[in-house]
């Protein structure tokens, strides 16, 4: 693993040059934020509140350290905060209804010897799981759509608000397709061992569709996709409202 780490750092520095250092710093801060999240939850802090606070820190790092244009960064940050809040609002009732927290009967072998009444609220942890899962996808989507739209506005500063808003969807189409793919392929990565196991346990379709782990993966995929979809109108609305001069000025700064 050490060899892999060294290779990664060397390659990163060769390919991205000085930029690589700030990328590494950003990754390092995010990893620390996540470890802090784990420790705080284990110490008994409210899971949802802690996740919300840590998410804000992670989004600040993920957006402001990766984006140089200040207007793009500000809009992306605002949008990603709104989306994270919306994801929380959608996730809580869906998980309440689905009860897909914790682990499944399929995991039982792995859990031998553990004290299972650990005192952490796993229903709340399930909410945190979905929010953390979405953070990377959401921040990347916000940045991609904002910078795409800003470019359009810069090239044609005379466009009216309605056209800019509509252009958001043509920029959004491609991003939505690629992000859906990323989420879907990750769904494949986590579920194929599960399906294999279900087959050896002779599950029928009734057991599969009602299975806890399968349900949790489907809900994660679906909620993150909803987050990506909602990013498009919210970003487009903000870009269409903002003063055009600001966008042009911010690109000239660089």
């Amino acid at each position: 693993m050490l060899y892999l780490l060294i290779t990664f750092i060397v390659l990163l520095l060769i390919v991205t040059g000085q930029r690589g250092l700030s990328l590494l710093l950003g990754l390092g801060i995010n990893i620390f934020a996540i470890i802090a999240l784990l420790i705080l939850i284990a110490d008994g802090f409210n899971v949802v509140v802690t996740t919300a606070i840590i998410s804000v820190i992670i989004l600040v790092v993920a957006i402001y350290m990766n984006v140089e244009n200040s207007v793009t960064a500000n809009i992306s940050f605002k949008t990603s905060l709104v989306i994270t809040a919306l994801i929380l609002l959608i996730t809580i009732p869906i998980l309440y209804w689905s009860s897909t927290q914790g682990m499944g009967v399929e995991d039982q072998e792995e859990l031998e010897g553990f004290s299972l009444s650990a005192g952490v609220s796993f229903p709340q942890l399930a909410i945190a799981t979905i929010v953390v899962n979405s953070l990377g996808v959401i921040s990347e989507t916000c940045v991609a759509i904002t910078s795409g739209l800003n470019e359009i506005v810069m090239n044609k500063p005379t466009l009216d608000q309605k056209t800019v808003f509509a252009d958001g969807f043509s920029v959004g189409n491609k991003i939505l397709a690629t992000q859906t793919n990323t989420l879907l392929f990750n769904f494949f990565a986590t579920t194929f061992p599960l399906f294999f196991l279900m087959n050896s346990l002779h599950y029928g379709w009734q057991e599969i569709v009602n299975d806890k782990l399968f349900g949790a993966e489907v809900i994660t995929f679906v909620v993150c996709t909803i987050g990506v979809i909602l990013t498009v109108p919210i970003t487009a609305y903000q870009v269409s409202r903002i003063d055009r001069k600001k966008i042009i000025a911010s690109t000239k700064e660089q």
């Binding site: 990754l27 995010n30 682990m103 859990l111 004290s115 953390v132 990347e140 990750n186």
Partner: peptide, 30 residues
């Protein structure tokens, strides 16, 4: 490409962490 590397690694970082959150917490509490 330089601009893309950071956000893309972030995407996978959070997905990987989220997948393991339950088992990490169980280990910590034990």
């Amino acid at each position: 490409g330089k601009e893309l590397v950071g956000p893309l690694i972030n995407i996978l970082l959070f997905i990987v962490v989220a997948e393991n959150l339950n088992v990490v917490m169980l280990y910590l509490m034990n």
